[in-house]
């Protein structure tokens, strides 16, 4: 397992990194924690001619409250997110999603920005970002811009980031008081990528569903919202039957899930329905539903 040779750059500031990326015309890859990229290099599935390692840019390692949300620097490791009391207290859905990522060694090195920019459709962070409508702050030589989660994930391992763009921050809005949430997945072994997973937020008014959001991951080229299932819930009296029928809608709504040696397309579709029903039930209970 040996990567092919490349030039290595390790800028110490964001400004330096951005100007370097604007200047280099090689086949450049940005290295963050490396927990997806380095295996790809080792297997030579990726053969960039230059790497820009962001690991020394200390200014991109932070978690802070920001205007009713939580802003996290792109170079913050998954382990730091997992151990953040602020995240655990104010955004427990992000904490739960982080706990599902791989295993300790990976979370100790893997970064939130790297995971989002890599955009594996079965990964947890892209799904939780879509569920919460996170904003992505992006810097390039031409300035800074913000991209919403709905526009960020384009297709399999592809985002709205250009080759000279650096994802610098992701900002998660907090959930409103009383909103229930759930984030679950099915894996063959602990720490594996999800065969299928679901993130849900739900709010109840009386017994009636006043808000519902469902994101499925591992079943399409990006994490996807199940809008038809959301619509089927809102305005209705919540019941086990309603949850079962919304899960059926979600299951039918997705495109053609990946078929590989881990699971067939049909099995992933089946799991998407099961995950939706379980996540809806858990989220509804957290929102005060008594069934």
């Amino acid at each position: 397992m040996k990567p092919a040779p490349f030039d290595y750059h390790d800028p110490e500031t964001l400004d330096e990194a951005v100007s370097l990326l604007g200047r280099l015309d090689d086949d450049v890859k940005i290295l963050a924690g490396g927990q997806s990229l380095i295996p790809l290099l080792n297997m030579r599935l990726a053969r960039p001619t230059a790497l820009v390692d962001l690991g020394k840019i200390a200014e991109l390692d932070y978690i802070r409250e920001d205007n009713g949300g939580i802003a996290i620097g792109a170079l913050t490791t998954q382990r730091t997110v997992e151990r953040s009391q602020l995240v655990k207290d104010r955004l427990p859905v992000l904490y739960e999603a982080t706990r599902l990522i791989a295993h300790p060694q990976i979370r100790n090195r893997g970064t939130i920005g790297g995971s989002l920019a890599h955009a594996d459709p079965a990964a947890e962070y892209p799904a939780v970002a879509l569920l919460l409508d996170a904003d992505f702050k992006v810097r390039s030589a031409s300035g800074e811009r913000t991209i919403g989660a709905a526009d960020f994930f384009v297709t399999y391992l592809t985002t709205a980031l250009g080759p000279a763009d650096v994802l610098t921050e992701v900002r998660f809005p907090l959930l409103a008081e009383g909103v229930g949430w759930s984030f679950i997945e099915m894996t063959r072994r602990h720490g594996d990528f999800a065969l299928a997973g679901a993130g849900v937020t739900i709010a109840l008014s009386g017994g009636e569903c006043s808000h519902a959001r469902i994101v499925l991951f591992g079943v399409d080229a990006t994490p996807v919202r199940s809008k038809a299932a959301e619509q089927a819930l809102v305005g209705q009296e919540l019941s086990e039957e309603l949850i079962a029928s919304a899960a059926q809608t979600a299951r039918d709504e997705i495109g053609e899930p990946l078929s590989d040696n881990h699971a067939s397309s049909e099995f992933r579709r089946h799991l998407a329905g099961v995950m939706t029903a379980r996540a809806l039930t858990e989220a509804a209970r957290r929102a005060g539903w008594v069934n």
Partner: peptide, 23 residues
Amino acid sequence: GTGDCGACSMIVDGRLITSCCML
């Protein structure tokens, strides 16, 4: 060589890491 098995685990700056996935 892909960060799945942990055979190459080392402790770097107090954190357990897989050294095949660190340059």
